[in-house]
Nucleic acid binder design. Structure first.
Length: 186
DNA sequence: TACGTGATTACC
DNA sequence: GTAATCACGTAA
């Protein structure tokens, strides 16, 4: 078990980072959860990535180091959590789509208002709510924080599939999840 | 299956 | 100023 550093998000492509994070442990202010579902968004050549239609996202990519949190509000309701990648052949984001709660579960239940563990983090908007992540985390270099970061973990059988909830570039198999894990999004 | 919700953006 | 678009969750 080792802490991931920014170097992890510099040495591989955004797609490999997304796949490689499955099974790792996400630490956030007293809560711990295994990453069981991610998606990759490439800053160049991916029409579903924010950089394709948002100048502000392009500016963010250009002005922050690898490993920075990119957090934004979606549909006016849900905060979504991404990690910035600066790979050898391009930049991008890894979206956290689902987690398997390990510690701090009581706190997650409080924030979610649900008591079933598999309802806590089984979606990108759910997991930010469960962990108390909001716009304050945007731009944060959380990897080496006092109480935030990512720790390597056993990667089990990882399946790739198409990304969810997007209208463009639907043909890229850039969603990754652990097989047969009940905590992935529905 | 319908719909609330608000930031960002492009275009007047 | 306006309108369109959205990497979603919930109840039903």
């Amino acid at each position: 078990m080792e802490r991931l550093t920014a170097e992890f998000f510099e040495r591989s492509s955004v797609v490999d980072c997304a796949r490689g994070l499955i099974g790792a442990k996400f630490l956030w202010h007293g809560c711990e959860a295994r990453i069981v579902e991610t998606e990759a968004y490439a800053a160049e050549g991916d029409e579903a990535c924010h950089t394709f239609f948002r100048p502000g996202a392009r500016a963010f990519v250009a002005s922050h180091p690898a490993g920075t949190a990119y957090v934004y509000l979606n549909y006016g309701v849900h905060w979504l959590f991404n990690v910035l990648v600066h790979g050898p052949h391009g930049s991008g984001f890894v979206l956290f789509r689902a987690l398997e709660p390990l510690a701090g579960i009581e706190r997650m239940m409080e924030r979610r208002g649900r008591s079933m563990v598999r309802e806590l983090c089984s979606g990108p908007g759910k997991l930010t709510r469960a962990l108390g992540i909001d716009g304050a985390a945007h731009g944060c270099e959380f990897l080496n924080g006092e109480s935030t970061g990512i720790v390597t973990g056993a990667s089990k059988a990882v399946t790739s599939s198409f990304r969810i909830g997007i209208s463009r570039a639907q043909d890229l198999p850039w969603r990754f999840h652990e097989e047969a894990n009940i905590h992935v999004s529905r």
